[in-house]
Amino acid sequence: MSITVRYFASLREQLGISEASVPADGIHCVADVWQRAQPDRDLPPRVLAALNHAHASLEDPVRDGDEVAFFPPVTGG
């Protein structure tokens, strides 16, 4: 089983990828998802995270089948 990872806006462009799937084994929290998906990059400052379509912190627990997203500060409105 796996975890879906999504990236948006300038972060999506910087990484050159909008979506990926990573194995769920050994992943406990949102920060683990970033490390698994982007092992050669530190999480950029100010990047925000969401878990299953809700704002999340890096410490929030992640389960098999979850969707985790990373994105820059929002600029709607």
């Binding site: 948006f8 806006a9 300038s10 969401a50 704002h55 997203a69 994105f71 820059p72 500060p73 929002v74 600029t75 709607g76 409105g77």
Partner: peptide
């Protein structure tokens, strides 16, 4: 403006593009 996951990218007169910073 604080919470909704929306991002603006502007197209400029010189053909360039830039993401709007909060």
């Amino acid at each position: 403006k604080e919470r909704a996951p929306l991002w603006k990218q502007e197209a400029l007169e010189d053909g360039g593009r830039r993401w709007v910073s909060p």
